[in-house]
Write a protein that binds this DNA or RNA. Structure first.
Lengths: 217, 217
DNA sequence: AATGTTTTTTAGATTTGTCTAAACTTTTAG
DNA sequence: CTAAAAGTTTAGACAAATCTAAAAAACATT
């Protein structure tokens, strides 16, 4: 078994490598972990010794199959706990991240299988992210980012790619929650701000915000 | 906030001092923690610095009010999680201790209050132990140990004072679960073994086992 | 009260995860 | 293609929690 810290490194490496095939760089990990690059170097040596990542000096790291499996399992636990917190304990979607960061390290396969069943095997967490199954499989649903839509395009809000409380509260206030149908009515020439119709209400979004909203056409 | 380790020390000191007023000894803590006395000395110095315990060299330790409040809060979390595991996730009463040992360190007051509400404010955990309320108050229900009963005495099984899986499975097999009515029908001269009637079934208990069963007359 | 046993503490070492400062690679730009 | 900038690693140190071995205090017993 790994320590909490090792698990957090694996999770971060997983998230940083999920888009691209490129190796993950020391500084990127350090920034996400809130540590210094020197500390990251120490830790990745340790993870490489344990065959959880492949590491070449100065060249960044990649997860091994074992490492990826471990990381996905942590993600699975995180997302299931988030569902529990929202569905069963009535937390809001912007309140659950930090608690789930702690709960994801609880160590009992049996617990997670039973929690999964208790929650009726949810497919997505409260932010729309897919929940891996016991074997680590999940649809890597390829949604479009809202900032890629053109005028008159429409679609359903399926998820977000930013989980900060500030961002989620902002969406909540705008009425932009999961499942909502949106239609792009205008895109400003000046800074690319997007004008949307959500349930016949007109709202305005910065491109920065739009970038983190995932849409199914 | 304290580390997991500090929390575990406080919890153990609390349990070791709940019966008596006497200071808790270094060796007793070491045994429960599964560490050596020298390590305990180091840690109790640290806890004393933080004003969580009162420590006099060679004289053992006592909890301060703050220390006791902290310890009781951990006990509260532990027992609420045990209720959750048994009531909601269908774990057996002998399977929940270790998982609750991990969950008790999750750090969110809001989470615990909502969990308490979700579970409909239970008064006791699956082993009959009382669950402290938000303020740390709980009835220190004074039950009798089964080995104190005399022939023809009867009462209800209200709890256990031993939480090992082996012990609990044994009780389960005997049908000695919470709420059962028992009546002492005989006590062997030889070794003090106790013969009981439980739901019109005759069973035999060693004194050692009986000592850990709590009865309300 | 003296002596032996038990308990506790001290001293010094180890492991884990972190840091700073300095050295070393790799990348980027002129 | 070379020099500066950016990124990474090494070296040495530190705090937390533990350990072993040895010293010190408390206790128990004749």
């Amino acid at each position: 078994m790994q320590s909490f810290t090792e698990e957090n490194y694996l999770k971060i490496i997983y998230h940083l490598s999920s888009d691209t095939d490129a190796p993950v760089q020391t500084n990127a990990i350090a920034e996400r972990m809130g540590t210094k690059a020197a500390s990251v170097t120490d830790m990745i040596k340790k993870l490489a010794d344990k065959q959880l990542i492949i590491y070449q000096k100065y060249q960044g790291v990649k997860l091994t199959d074992t490492g990826r499996r471990t990381a996905i399992n942590i993600v699975r636990k995180h997302r299931l706990w988030e569902v529990f917190l929202v569905e069963k304990l009535s937390f809001k979607w912007d309140e659950v991240h930090d608690i789930a960061e702690e709960l994801e390290h609880i160590n009992s396969a049996e617990l997670i299988e039973r929690l999964d069943e208790f929650l009726a095997f949810p497919k997505n967490d409260p932010h729309g992210d897919p929940i891996p199954d016991k074997e680590g499989k999940f649809d890597s649903a390829s949604f479009i980012k809202l900032n890629k839509l053109k005028i008159n395009d429409q679609g359903l809000v399926m998820g977000v790619s930013e989980h900060s409380s500030a961002f989620l509260k902002h969406l909540e206030k705008l009425g932009l929650t999961l499942g909502k149908l949106v239609k792009v009515t205008d895109i400003t020439d000046f800074d690319g701000s997007i004008e949307l119709l959500v349930e016949s209400k007109k709202i305005n979004l910065s491109r920065e915000v739009a970038k983190h909203i995932l849409i199914k056409a």
